[in-house]
């Protein structure tokens, strides 16, 4: 009854149920934080250039370069169960065939509250291309700033922190050499 084995068994069972309850409570507590901060996102310029695909030599396709300006204060998203924030800027458009395309063109990982005031003037970090290799018939795109809040323990949540007010059209492709 009071053997060492029984004591160890009881103790570890009690300890693990305590830890699990605590973790469960922490995970549930993050539903109490419902901050939804909004920032400003503006697209400064969109340019389309023809180029050669790095992966498929001989295939020429069009690449879009987007200059953007983000200013957002995301500090309200940091609470005791926030491990990090994955922040990303995406272009959204419905192509000529009527299907939705979402492309992430920039991202940033925010790990500390002190870094959560975002002021970025930048250009896309990732290649922005279309599945048809051309942006000629692609309707104007919306750009939005999204975030993924990753907790220390519990459920991953997503949200939107900014959006362009009007769709931004793709200009016709231009040559690299200016005339």
């Amino acid at each position: 009854m009071h053997s060492i084995y029984a004591r160890i068994n009881n103790f570890s069972a009690f300890l693990s149920s305590c830890i699990l309850t605590l973790l469960g409570a922490i995970a549930l507590s993050s539903f109490l934080f419902t901050a939804n901060p909004q920032g400003d996102l503006s697209v400064l310029s969109v340019k389309v250039y023809p180029g050669n695909s790095r992966r498929q030599p001989g295939l020429s396709q069009e690449y879009t370069f987007v200059n953007f300006n983000i200013s957002a204060d995301l500090t309200p998203l940091f609470h005791w169960n926030t491990k990090q924030l994955f922040l990303y800027l995406q272009a959204e458009y419905t192509d000529a065939k009527g299907v939705r395309n979402d492309v992430v063109i920039w991202d940033r990982i925010v790990r500390r509250k002190e870094e959560a005031v975002i002021n970025v003037v930048g250009r896309n970090k990732y290649v922005f291309r279309d599945i048809s290799h051309s942006f000629k018939n692609v309707p104007p795109a919306n750009y939005s700033l999204q975030y993924n809040l990753m907790p220390h323990v519990g459920v991953l949540t997503y949200g939107e922190a900014g959006r362009t007010t009007e769709p931004v059209p793709f200009p016709p492709a231009q040559d690299f050499v200016s005339r």
Binding site: Y88, V99, D102, V103, V104, Y126, Y158
Partner: peptide, 29 residues
């Protein structure tokens, strides 16, 4: 699926499932 979702995928011939984030979603008809 949406961009930013973290998916676990396994392609034919792949050894182990991979956990990575979605960068682009494209619709095809």
């Amino acid at each position: 699926y949406h961009t930013g979702d973290i998916t676990v995928y396994k392609v034919p011939g792949g050894q182990i499932p991979i956990v990575h984030r979605v960068l682009e979603t494209r619709g095809v008809v």
